[in-house]
Simulated scan of single mutants.
Amino acid sequence: MSIDTDLVDSFMPPGKRIQQTENEAGLIVWTCEVSVDGKDVFRISHDNWEPGWSTRRFAVRHAYVKPVHEAADKSYVYSENGAVATVRCTDQGGDRDLFLVAKANENTAGAKGMEKFIVAYRDEFLKSDPCTDL
């Protein structure tokens, strides 16, 4: 996916070597871990989950993200160091929903930077029509 580098730079500490590691556990979970000079600094994941879970509930119970702020439509929550957005595949006839999770160990952009990232990431993720495989 193509995400504006300005949205990601605020999560990266100074360093010489950036490494990205992707892991996929079937259709259930996909993760991408980013490290700088061997230190984990940022993680993105998406989880295929049973329907009926609110974004806030998933954030607390499974993503370990504290939902300090919530979008008016409740489609995403975010805080200084984490964010969760929901893609409702059940609204499109699927039997599962997707939860997108972003977590940062360092964040110079604050909660607003995390919000901008999760919204941009969700918008880009939706372009791939992710619910067709569920």
Rank of each mutant, 00 (worst) to 15 (best):
S45M: 11
E70S: 01
K74M: 13
Q92C: 10
D91M: 09
D9R: 15
K127I: 13
K16L: 15
R88G: 10
P13C: 07
E70M: 13
R57K: 14
K103Y: 07
S75Y: 02
Y78D: 08
L126P: 05
G94P: 02
K116I: 14
H62G: 05
Q20K: 09
V101I: 05
Y64S: 12
S10N: 10
N107E: 10
T31V: 13
T5I: 14
R57W: 00
L98S: 03
R61K: 09
T86S: 02
D73Y: 08
G93H: 00
Q19A: 12
E106V: 15
N105Q: 11
Y78E: 07
L100G: 07
V119M: 02
N23Q: 13
T132M: 09
D133Q: 06
D133K: 07
S79P: 04
V8G: 05
G113S: 00
I3A: 08
R57S: 13
A102M: 04
Q92M: 15
H46Y: 12
T21Q: 10
D123P: 00
A104P: 00
P13K: 14
E124Y: 03
D40T: 02
H62Q: 13
D47N: 12
D37Y: 07
I18P: 03
D4A: 11
N81G: 12
F42T: 09
L7G: 01
M114E: 01
A111F: 06
I44P: 01
R17D: 15
S45D: 13
D9T: 15
E24G: 09
A59S: 04
